[in-house]
Design a protein around this nucleic acid. Structure first.
Lengths: 323, 323
DNA sequence: TATAATTACGTAATTGATTACGCAAATATA
DNA sequence: TATATTTGCGTAATCAATTACGTAATTATA
């Protein structure tokens, strides 16, 4: 198909569907050529029972990789053709233990002949092929088991978007965004405290002039995330990580992590040895980021914010750079 | 899937279906991850229209390799989402010329971003793969275009069955089969003639003792085809090919051709230069075999049988063997 | 031992494709 | 020019899978 040259590999699903359709249609014709009263969709089930085994419905489903209702329907069809015998499971009365009838086994035996011929035919195709479809399918199944396509796309998107994200030091024009982004998450669960308002309204005076820092994440030039390093009151810590906010619209793209990393790097640049932060266990994504950055939960909790219920610290690697 | 290790490649259809299902399911999740209100099945249609082209329904169907009703339904869905504009075709009023609306084009543009990420993700899979699925699909499509699977299986079956067929010289115990098989086809369209009965009842006296020959095709040991070489009255010909019959149950498996080839070979062995036969144009499969054997139709027709309406001859290659 | 959770499996509804069919318009043909 | 054939396309029916759901039996748990 010329079309798929243009779509690129994104259309792999459509392309697979087309080929599947085609092969299934031929399978039906092949069966009728052998005077087999059998539908292509029966194949996996008949194959699973062809040695005369007795199996439960869900067991067959698991084996052939389909859902149990689909197997259930196929079995109903086999039954109506007199190809099936059913017994009660010896111990478990929920089970519907099915096996092929003599008639069904006869069908299976004919099917084996058909299979041999189909196998031969497929080999004639495969012999003229430079790329092994069978092995390729195997590899794809295996790789998708390892990590589904969805996750891989998520990762690709993150990679791409990361390049559109820029972490810059705070400038006065970022104040409205600094305020808005923080107000957003705080008021979603709690009330703004007096200290919040002071810092959000006057970041220069309240944070920067006191030896702190603010970092801003720009996405395509627009501020979508902020993060502050406050000079710590506690002499045990150098900075407190606070006012950490990422716009909900931009969440889930790794921007928070980038921002956090930048903050830790900034602290390190300023010679910090230990960072502190206070947060709330309701804020799952934030905690996830903190842990990824290396923060460890403190055992003892001494509250500072009304909304806090967890405190964490990070011991910075004393990177004795030799360069 | 371990199951497909056991089925062998015959289950290629089932295996493809499984992978298709899986990828399509992920595609749906991917779209929703990008907040795209779009179903995977829309993809080919949207792609075909993404540059703002106006196209007819069947034209799209042809392009994407699906049926027009399927496209028609997809277009209905796009329409209900306000993604489509329809114009009347300038000259042909049957045509429903459709294009994406501004909204639709916006969707297509977002889709392009998604495609880029999906492409990247697929490349990460492909990079870890030793067999190229994309190319393999391409090759399969191409080879199946050339000759469908059905034909290839038919050929494989013929090859296999040929090995179960044995062509042997006539022996007295074959007389009932020789009679039965010929009576079968003759009486299906015509009446038995006196000469028929003489030959069928007394093949030794009427055919063999007069310098002719009879060959029998055995399928798993049972006679399913017969063919006679009659000494010719006409001095121009050495033998007449006649009493050629293959059981309807065994037809379409190349047995007739094998029998014919054996008869021609037998004639050649006996030093024949020219063969003759008389048949009827109603007997399509037989004529097909005769032509394959190299028989040419005679222009002039001089009837010998009441059921004849065509006469053919074969000039044998004078194989001057040097061995 | 009573209750909750899990498991087996069938039926119904849904989905995305197909084939079948019918109508209207365009084109070919006598 | 009248009639037959072909073409475009929508709707309905069908098919093979899925998910959703309900019931009964079994197993785990309090």
């Amino acid at each position: 198909m010329d079309f798929f040259e243009r779509t690129g590999k994104t259309a792999i699903g459509s392309r697979l569907r087309l080929l599947t359709e085609r092969i299934t249609a031929d399978a039906a014709r092949i069966y009728s050529m052998y005077d087999l009263t059998m539908k292509p969709k029966w194949f996996p089930v008949v194959f699973a029972l062809k040695e005369g085994e007795t199996k439960a419905v869900t067991a067959i489903a698991r084996e052939i990789g389909q859902t149990h209702p689909s197997v259930s329907v196929i079995l109903k069809e086999l039954r109506s053709h007199g190809l099936l015998v059913e017994q009660e499971h010896p111990t478990d009365r929920r089970c519907n233990a099915v096996a092929l009838s003599d008639e069904g086994l006869r069908l299976a035996r004919t099917l084996e002949t058909v299979c041999r011929d189909v196998e031969t035919a497929i080999d004639t195709v495969a012999a003229r092929t430079r790329h092994d479809l069978w092995r390729a399918l195997e590899e794809w199944e295996c790789l998708l088991d390892e990590q589904p396509l969805l996750d891989r796309v998520k990762e690709a998107r993150r990679q791409r978007e990361r390049q559109l994200v820029e972490i810059v030091p705070y400038r006065p024009e970022h104040q409205p965004a600094f305020r808005r982004l923080n107000v957003e998450w705080i008021t979603a669960h709690w009330q703004l405290e007096a200290s919040d308002l002071r810092q959000l309204d006057h970041p220069r005076e309240e944070i920067l002039d006191r030896g702190g820092a603010i970092l801003v994440a720009l996405y395509r030039g627009a501020p979508v995330g902020v993060c502050a390093l406050l000079r710590s009151h506690d002499p045990h810590y150098d900075f407190e990580l606070a006012k950490f906010a990422v716009s909900p619209l931009a969440q889930g793209r790794g921007i928070g992590l980038l921002l956090g990393e930048a903050a830790v790097a900034e602290a390190a640049k300023r010679g910090a040895r230990r960072l502190f932060l206070e947060s709330n266990t309701l804020l799952k994504p934030a905690l996830h980021i903190y842990r990824k950055l290396g923060f460890r939960e403190l055992d003892t909790y001494r509250p500072a914010y009304a909304r806090g219920d967890i405190q964490m610290e990070l011991e910075l690697q004393t990177e004795t750079r030799n360069e």
